[in-house]
Amino acid sequence: MTLRLQPVQVATGSSDTESLLVFSGEFLVAVLVRLSEIHGDRAGMWFLEAGFGPVEHTDSPIFADLDEAQSWVERRLESRR
């Protein structure tokens, strides 16, 4: 499965705006937001702002980099196949 990433700005009501829409095929499955400097030592990491279907999670994880984020999203999608 290949995920496609599309840069976008998200209005989170904070300085966390730099974001990526994550598509699996034609479907939007997640929105990842890059944590800004307000998050101290977590700045630069990626936060699962929203997940849809199997990617939805009540305790949204934070990923050190995009590879880790994509692997996690892929695993979630595969787990529900």
Partner: peptide
């Protein structure tokens, strides 16, 4: 809430 949201709300 996640700690990210807590931080955002506190800042707001």
């Amino acid at each position: 809430l996640t700690s990210v949201h807590v931080n955002r709300v506190l800042r707001d």
